[in-house]
């Protein structure tokens, strides 16, 4: 009897079946990698802000406590953004004439708030804050999320 298919068809079938699975896995890997790449997340790209502000300068150089500005971090799921009033507590005295800080002074004069651009997108709601705590315990091998006494354990 004449074979309908050539002998090599078996190989082609096997390769294409497994190959398709590998292709799918590869595609998934590409998708995940692209999704997490800095190209998509825009990590390291500076957002345009109304006023150049440096955490490094204010915290590391000046030694201001995080809670001085992020006032609600211990009471709420939202750490809080400092009001213009908090900026002006110091900047009415130091760098009081700096042209860089003019938007801050304008905001204080007019009562019109500053429009900051959000850098990190995840604003945790209380519901998944709990989940986040567990995630920390799991992936960072921290004994207990409540033992994170210092903000700088994670926010470096």
């Amino acid at each position: 009897m004449r074979r309908t298919f050539h002998r090599s068809t078996n190989t082609i079938a096997r390769v294409s079946i497994f190959g398709f699975l590998f292709f799918l896995a590869g595609l998934a890997w590409v998708m995940i990698t692209v999704g997490r790449s800095s190209y998509v997340t825009e990590a390291g790209i500076a957002r345009r802000q109304p006023v150049p502000f440096s955490h490094k300068h204010h915290v590391a150089d000046d030694g201001i406590d995080c809670r001085y500005c992020h006032t609600t971090v211990e009471n709420s799921s939202f750490a809080g953004m400092p009001s213009t009033q908090i900026c002006m507590n110091c900047h009415s005295q130091i760098w009081a004439d700096s042209p860089m800080l003019e938007p801050v002074r304008a905001s204080y004069r007019t009562g019109e708030p500053l429009h900051w651009t959000r850098v990190h997108m995840q604003w945790q709601t209380p519901a998944n804050q709990d989940e986040m705590g567990r995630e920390l315990v799991r992936s960072y091998k921290i004994k207990d999320a409540r033992s994170l006494m210092s903000c700088s354990t994670c926010h470096r």
């Binding site: 957002r47 609600t72 213009t84 009562g111 651009t117 959000r118």
Partner: peptide
């Protein structure tokens, strides 16, 4: 691109998120 718009003067007793 999202914005954060804090208060210019924070009202007394307001805890954001509470």
């Amino acid at each position: 691109v999202e914005e954060i718009i804090p208060y210019a003067r924070q009202p007394e007793q307001v805890v954001l998120g509470q």
